[in-house]
Simulated scan of single mutants.
Amino acid sequence: MNLVDCKSALKTLESGLPIIFPTDTLPAIGCLPEFSNIIYEFKKRDKDKPLILMGSEHKQLIDYVNESAKKDYENIASKYWPGALTMVIPASERHTTIITSNDLTLGLRIPNSYMAQSLIRETGPLLTSSANLSGFKGSITVEGISQDFPSVKILGPIPWGKISGKASTIIFWKKSGDWRLIREGEVLVKELY
C-alpha cells in the first residue's frame, strides 16, 4: 500500500500521476487538470465519460463557470456545498482546455471531507472520478482500493473518516433557473421538485 501525506501527494500530482483520496461519498482518484488522460488510463475508462472537477470551496471553482450560469452556480453552491452534489454547468471560455465532456460543460463538486478539502486546498482543483476500475463496483476501503490500483499512491493517514458509499447527486444546468436531475444520489435538490 502506497500511503502518502499531502506534501508527497502534491509532488506525485505535479509529476503527472494520480492520487486516491477519500471524499464524503466514494473514494476518488484525482489528477491535476492538465493530466486528465492518466485517470482514463488507470481506470480503463471510456473517453466519452467526463470527469468531475473538485475544489476545496466554491470560490475556488467559480472561474471555471461560464458567466451565463454564475448566478445559479452561486445559489446552489451556497445551499448544498460542501456535500454530495455535482453540478454540470457550462464551462468558462478560459478553461475549455480541461473539459473532458463533448458539450463544453464541466461537472463541479466540493466534497464534505476534511481530507479531500485539505488536499485540494494545497493542489488546486483536481479532475476526479470514483476510485474503481470502469465497469466494476469499487471498494470503499483502502485495502480494497490498493488491490485495484497497486501502483497509485493513496492519501493517508488511515483509517479514513466516514465514507457513505453512495454516489453524489448530479444536476445539469439548462438555462437560468432551470436545472435537470441526471442522477439521484444522497442529496435531494429542492429546486428541482
Rank of each mutant, 00 (worst) to 15 (best):
N2E: 11
V4Q: 03
S8T: 11
A9R: 03
E14P: 01
E14M: 14
G16Y: 03
I20V: 14
F21D: 05
L26C: 09
L26Y: 00
I29N: 11
L32A: 12
P33E: 07
P33Y: 00
K49G: 05
L51Y: 02
Q60L: 11
Q60K: 12
L61F: 11
L61R: 01
L61T: 04
D63E: 15
V65C: 11
E67T: 14
E67G: 06
E67N: 15
S68T: 04
K70T: 13
E74Y: 04
I76M: 11
P82D: 10
G83E: 08
L85A: 05
L85S: 00
T86Q: 06
I89W: 08
S92D: 13
H95D: 02
T96N: 07
N102Q: 14
L106M: 09
L108S: 06
R109M: 02
R109D: 08
N112I: 06
Y114E: 15
M115Q: 15
S118Y: 12
L119I: 02
L119Q: 06
I120G: 04
R121C: 14
E122S: 14
L126Y: 03
S129F: 01
S129M: 04
S130I: 03
I140S: 03
I140A: 03
Q147F: 07
F149T: 10
S151N: 15
P157K: 09
G161E: 10
K162C: 13
K162A: 08
K162H: 05
G165Y: 07
A167C: 04
I170A: 03
R183K: 13
E184R: 12
E184D: 11
E186W: 00
K190E: 12
Y193G: 11
Y193H: 11
